[in-house]
């Protein structure tokens, strides 16, 4: 088990290394930051001195190593848009809002999709199964930004049950969380359903039945423990797409999280902040997938002992 975790951790470090190279390269591909930092009528002397000050005259590998060294301690430079703050501080300030919203969306997805998927497999072909199929189809067809606007229109504007947008307590989070979760519910329901269908057909489920296990334990203990590996796998994707989804949904609902921050930073050509957001997203995604790998081992002893 320890060895398993160690291997996964080393894989994570390799992935992280590749990501830093990509982030570093991309930021250089977008052109020299000098042009953005200095006014159009800057003299060659000003340009040269700033280039030297920022270390942009040094070879790329030296610049990369410096970037890596600073990134390791969370230093991505100072924000150019939000003056007087480091880029990392700007991102960290917005991170809780995104995690709160994303967490609620994950919670809604899991709480809705798992029972929906399991029960539609158990009652396959029933009205329940067909209804779940419709919910999944709709979820996969609605783009999140469109769904967000429609939800806002119906539940905030017409019915007045929730505030339209902005930052606040639970009532502010429900509509954006549903907009983010519905697509995930769709995918997760279908995955859980097909995994359960496969498992319900196995011999060990039959053996559990013939040895007298009651139907509820057959489904939730014997079958679901085995089918769970599929939704667990999807959890890694889920975590990642909730971050990318946050860029869209946070913009629609004016939710001041990292997604909205990324859009603002890109518009303001605030590269340090863009870089930090990308790095934070990357690390978060890696951690989520690492967690998935560990969960695998918890769920399936064949992985734990190999």
């Amino acid at each position: 088990m320890l060895r398993f975790i160690f291997t996964r951790l080393s894989h994570m470090l390799i992935a992280l290394f590749v990501i830093t190279v990509i982030v570093f390269s991309l930021s250089h591909l977008t052109g020299s930051p000098i042009d953005a930092l200095l006014p159009d009528d800057a003299t060659q002397q000003q340009i040269d001195s700033l280039t030297e000050h920022l270390g942009l005259d040094r070879p790329y590998y030296v610049q990369y190593l410096t970037f890596l060294q600073n990134a390791a301690v969370g230093d991505f430079g100072d924000s150019t848009k939000w003056k007087g703050n480091t880029a990392a501080a700007v991102v960290l300030e917005r991170l809780p809002a995104t995690l709160k919203l994303g967490g609620l969306a994950v919670l809604i997805s899991v709480v809705v999709a798992i029972p929906l998927g399991v029960l539609s497999a158990v009652w396959r072909g029933s009205v329940f199964d067909r209804m779940a199929g419709v919910i999944a189809l709709l979820g996969q067809s609605f783009p999140a930004f469109w769904l967000g606007i429609i939800l806002m229109w119906i539940f905030a504007v017409m019915l007045g049950w929730f505030p339209t947008s902005g930052y606040g307590g639970l009532s502010y989070m429900i509509l954006p969380a549903i907009a983010m979760a519905w697509f995930q519910i769709a995918a997760l329901t279908r995955l859980t359903r097909s995994a359960m269908l496969e498992v319900l057909d196995t011999e060990y489920v039959k053996l559990a039945r013939v040895k007298g296990v009651n139907e509820r334990s057959v489904i939730w203990k014997h079958a679901f423990r085995n089918a769970a590996i599929v939704p667990v796998t999807y959890f890694g994707v889920l975590a990642g797409s909730l971050l990318t989804g946050s860029v869209v949904v946070e913009t629609v609902f004016a939710w001041p999280g990292t997604g909205l921050l990324a859009i603002d930073a890109i518009r303001g050509r605030d590269f340090p902040v863009v870089q930090s957001v990308v790095m934070f997203f990357a690390v978060f995604y890696l951690l989520a997938n690492f967690l998935v790998d560990v969960l695998y081992a918890v769920v399936d002893p064949r992985i734990r002992f190999s």
Binding site: T202, E203, Y204, K206, L207, A208, H222, R225, N226, V299, D300, P301, R302
Partner: peptide, 9 residues
């Protein structure tokens, strides 16, 4: 090979 549940001892 298939009639015992793989995730339980």
């Amino acid at each position: 090979h298939t009639s015992l549940n793989p995730v339980f001892t």
